[in-house]
Design a protein around this nucleic acid. Structure first.
Lengths: 262, 262
DNA sequence: TCATGTGAAAACGTTCACAGCA
DNA sequence: TGCTGTGAACGTTTTCACATGA
């Protein structure tokens, strides 16, 4: 069972200690996925600060707002570069620009949504897509009642047309919002035309080529996870603590403990 | 043969005294969150096997279907107990029952959805809720055009009615599908009536009491993460490997490496 | 003085490798 | 023989603690 071992890992990760590459400032260090997931959160918070004309923010403040540990914020941000000022903090507007660059937001990705049911429609209309950097450029379904419909200026086409997409028309990101039973076929089709980033909302484990990035969003898993903790912890302390337990917003008080979950 | 039972006491948070800090009385081992998230996936796969009248499954097979490492499957399952048979494997139906129990599925949680927009409607109609163990029992919104509407047999009420819920009417899980700006207020209200499990779809970091379990589902974060990897990796290896890289569908072939990221 | 940036340590999660059992 | 269950190794992520610099 070692046939299909993936040899090509991105940049050799066993970097000798102290190997600080003195080259391009942009993608100097490897950014762990855990950090990547937090960057949009920081970004969102920073945007709020900018709207409120805040011109300086410390890692401690940012951490409080993001409900994480301050050291984590510093580590995360330091991966992008040294953008803070010792003694005072970070400039929100500048930080946003740096995070944007790291996330590739400037590239304006095109998105195709496959499966125009309730969920698909919800996503198309959601904030998430409206946000900068993402544009819904193609919609697909198989239902004759839906094909031809126009949503947000984009006409729904039949799924059979996906294979006819040219390289120029090919979306950067494919979003799968079909029923579970249809998801694998959709993924296959999208991968075949060269889509390499997929976001799957269907309750199904998908098989895709190794070069394709696949992320899952799964409502029923989230519910079941909540159910798990509900069944475990809550039975122990039901009823108590609805008063004092409220997490303090007070600055500089360590909120280290409650960072992860809760 | 376990040499020390890790009585995990770490992360002394500043919980006021009197809180029930003792370890969980119900089950033996602590189940890490990473495992909890995978359990519903296994469960779903096992259900498919049962439908196909499969009576035995090995960790290797299950791992292949779930696209994870076989050792991980065994570790995960062993946390629930020793349910396998050496030399042959696991009984899918039995395993489902065990996972169900661990997830508290037998308890039939009641769910309230707050924010009956596109997304809320999509969720209400989705498979996730239809699945066993979850029942939408209350719907809330502020829009007069929506309040009074009936969805799946449940009438939408005004959010102002949330505080009037009795303990018996209180949902086990609250789902927040409002716009971002309204989410914190909704969370506060739900927490005040004693809801201790929240699933937040609004693009906002929420502050909740320490005893409340809060999970996030955030479309724009997922898109941005995909954008990140798209911008980083893909520019490097476009064009190559579009053939050899295809993950084999062959059963029992190791897929060890490619599970997590990528 | 104050907050960043970062080695070092701790915690956590995954994978290996194999003892032990059906 | 074949597969589970699990110590131990390994890799990743978080947190600590403090040197460094504005």
């Amino acid at each position: 069972m070692r046939r299909c071992m993936r040899l090509v890992r991105r940049r050799g990760r066993s970097v000798p200690s102290g190997a600080v590459s003195a080259e391009s400032p942009s993608s100097a260090k490897r950014i762990p996925e855990a950090t990547v997931v937090r960057l949009p959160v920081y970004q969102r918070i920073l945007a709020g600060l900018v709207r409120n004309s805040v011109t300086t923010v410390s890692s401690e403040q940012l951490a409080t707002l993001a409900r994480v540990n301050a050291a984590k914020v510093r580590k995360d941000l330091s991966l992008l570069g040294s953008f803070g000022t010792r003694g005072s903090g970070y400039d929100p507007a500048f930080l946003i620009a740096q995070i944007d660059r790291a996330l590739g937001v400037d590239q304006n990705w095109s998105v195709a949504v496959v499966g125009i049911g309730n969920l698909g429609r919800a996503l198309i209309n959601s904030q998430g897509f409206a946000s900068k950097g993402f544009e819904v450029r193609a919609l697909f379904d198989v239902d004759p009642a839906v094909v031809g419909e126009e949503l947000r200026g984009v006409t729904v086409r039949h799924m059979d047309e996906i294979p006819t997409l040219t390289a120029a028309q090919r979306p950067d990101i494919g979003v799968i919002t079909t029923p579970g039973w249809a998801a694998q076929k959709v993924a296959d089709t999208l991968c075949e035309v060269g889509v390499t980033s997929l976001l799957n909302f269907a309750p199904r484990v998908l098989v895709v080529p190794a070069n394709v990035h696949l992320r899952y969003v799964d409502l029923s898993i989230e519910l079941q996870v909540l159910g798990f903790y509900r069944a475990r912890n809550d039975e122990a302390d039901t009823g108590t603590a609805s008063e004092e337990a409220r997490v303090p917003m007070i600055r500089s008080v360590g909120l280290s403990a409650s960072s992860d979950l809760d």
